[in-house]
Amino acid sequence: MSDRTFIRHVVLFSAKDKADIGRIREGLSMLADIPHSSLFEVVENSRVDAFSGEIDVVVYAEFKDDAALQAYKADPIYQQAIDLVRPLRDKRIAADF
Rank of each mutant, 00 (worst) to 15 (best):
residue 82 I to N: 03
residue 61 A to Y: 07
residue 85 V to S: 03
residue 26 E to K: 15
residue 65 D to C: 09
residue 12 L to D: 08
residue 72 Y to W: 12
residue 93 I to S: 02
residue 77 I to K: 11
residue 73 K to F: 10
residue 27 G to P: 13
residue 75 D to E: 10
residue 87 P to D: 04
residue 37 S to M: 08
residue 82 I to W: 08
residue 43 V to C: 13
residue 2 S to I: 04
residue 47 R to E: 15
residue 67 A to K: 11
residue 31 L to Y: 13
residue 80 Q to C: 05
residue 4 R to W: 00
residue 57 V to D: 10
residue 49 D to Y: 02
residue 73 K to P: 02
residue 1 M to P: 02
residue 31 L to S: 07
residue 6 F to S: 13
residue 43 V to A: 13
residue 51 F to G: 14
residue 11 V to A: 15
residue 86 R to Q: 09
residue 88 L to H: 01
residue 90 D to E: 14
residue 57 V to I: 12
residue 12 L to K: 00
residue 56 D to V: 12
residue 92 R to C: 14
residue 8 R to K: 09
residue 91 K to E: 11
residue 42 V to I: 15
residue 92 R to W: 00
residue 7 I to Y: 08
residue 97 F to Q: 08
residue 94 A to K: 04
residue 67 A to Q: 14
residue 55 I to K: 03
residue 69 L to N: 01
residue 92 R to P: 00
residue 54 E to N: 14
residue 61 A to F: 09
residue 12 L to S: 02
residue 9 H to I: 08
residue 24 I to S: 05
residue 75 D to N: 11
residue 84 L to P: 00
residue 31 L to R: 05
residue 71 A to I: 10
residue 30 M to V: 02
residue 30 M to Q: 14
residue 37 S to H: 14
residue 16 K to A: 04
residue 96 D to R: 06
residue 73 K to I: 09
residue 49 D to R: 12
residue 85 V to L: 04
residue 25 R to W: 00
residue 45 N to M: 05
residue 21 I to W: 02
residue 81 A to L: 07
residue 78 Y to L: 04
residue 25 R to E: 15
residue 82 I to H: 02
residue 4 R to H: 00
residue 91 K to C: 03
residue 16 K to W: 01
residue 43 V to D: 01
residue 43 V to I: 12
residue 83 D to L: 04
residue 64 K to Q: 15
residue 29 S to T: 07
residue 32 A to R: 13
residue 69 L to S: 10
residue 39 L to T: 12
residue 71 A to T: 07
residue 81 A to W: 00
residue 40 F to Q: 03
residue 60 Y to C: 05
residue 47 R to F: 05
residue 63 F to H: 14
residue 47 R to W: 00
residue 23 R to C: 03
residue 68 A to P: 09
residue 85 V to Y: 01
